[in-house]
């Protein structure tokens, strides 16, 4: 049985069909890419999975559990973390606080215990310290040491992108949704991003879904690809197969060029 499956999902906004009858399954530990032209409905998939939208039809399952219609915070707790196309960081908090917020779902101390936090041996203090250690691991993993105590709005774009990835990782998710991780990055930063995404899968064993326009990145990292146009799946399978697929080329280029 697969780790995650999307079954016949449809979603429309006031007459515009953003997704229609979309299905796919994920195996544990794979990197799955979703490609398609602008407005094909890619981000809508993520918004449905993470609970920001409720699909009109269809169901979403995670590890045999039905999660359709759950509130976003429950879905996060169930093990799905995500990043956003246009960065949704906590701008006035420091990098460390942003990452600590990623640990939120693993923290348990109740209000009363928290009040005892100033005592080093209190349970809340020990918990907090343990999570700060975890966050430090992520900082090391993504090489963010230099930025740890700076407020997010003062950080360069590439670093913010990385930080958002780090925050999602801090949740220790089973599935990670990356919405255009390479958008706005320069060549070098993009290479680093490819390296990190692979690392996340290889070292942490996280299953990854990526939405991306950059074909170099898609080719490089994907185990499987799904191509989307006007909310419909037009092809799925191995990377090269899909990229060579006639309809995919038509969707991207408008018409079929003569291949030489």
């Amino acid at each position: 049985m697969s780790l995650f499956s999307l079954n016949h999902i449809s979603k429309s906004f006031g007459g515009v069909q953003a997704l229609s009858d979309l299905s796919f399954e994920l195996e544990e530990g794979e990197i799955f890419s979703v490609i398609g032209p602008n407005g094909a409905g890619k981000s809508t998939i993520f918004n449905c999975i993470s609970g920001l939208y409720t699909p009109d039809e269809g169901s979403i399952q995670l590890a045999e559990k039905e999660i359709t219609g759950w509130a976003p915070h429950r879905i996060a707790r169930a093990g799905i973390a995500r990043t956003f196309q246009n960065l949704e960081l906590f701008r006035y908090l420091t990098a460390v606080d942003n990452l600590l917020l990623g640990r939120h779902i693993h923290m348990q101390a109740s209000l009363l215990r928290i009040l005892a936090m100033p005592f080093r041996r209190s349970r809340a203090a020990r918990e907090e310290i343990a999570h700060r250690h975890k966050v430090e691991e992520i900082i090391e993993f993504l090489e963010l040491e230099a930025y740890r105590d700076r407020p997010v709005f003062a950080l360069p774009y590439g670093i913010q992108k990385l930080l958002e990835l780090g925050r999602a990782l801090a949740l220790e998710p089973k599935i990670l949704l990356l919405d255009e991780p390479a958008a706005g990055l320069n060549n070098e930063e993009r290479q680093d991003m490819i390296f990190w995404i692979k690392d996340i899968r290889d070292q942490l064993g996280v299953t990854v879904i990526v939405i991306e326009h950059n074909m170099e990145l898609v080719k490089d990292i994907s185990d499987r690809v799904l191509a989307l146009n006007f909310g419909r799946m037009i092809a799925t399978g191995q990377v090269l197969e899909v990229l060579e697929h006639e309809e995919v080329r038509k969707a991207y280029l408008g018409e079929i060029p003569e291949t030489t």
């Binding site: 993470s50 609970g51 920001l52 509130a71 976003p72 915070h73 879905i75 996060a76 707790r77 973390a81 995500r82 956003f84 949704e88 960081l89 906590f90 701008r91 006035y92 908090l93 606080d97 600590l100 917020l101 990623g102 939120h104 779902i105 923290m107 101390a109 209000l111 928290i114 936090m117 809340a124 907090e128 925050r167 999602a168 949740l171």
Partner: peptide, 24 residues
């Protein structure tokens, strides 16, 4: 300074991001 205070600030800065990282 606790997780509760951080969650408050997260909601202030972006309630959408707060919800997808698991804050109710």
């Amino acid at each position: 300074k606790s997780r509760i205070g951080r969650a408050f600030q997260a909601i202030r800065d972006s309630d959408i991001a707060a919800s997808v990282i698991g804050i109710n």
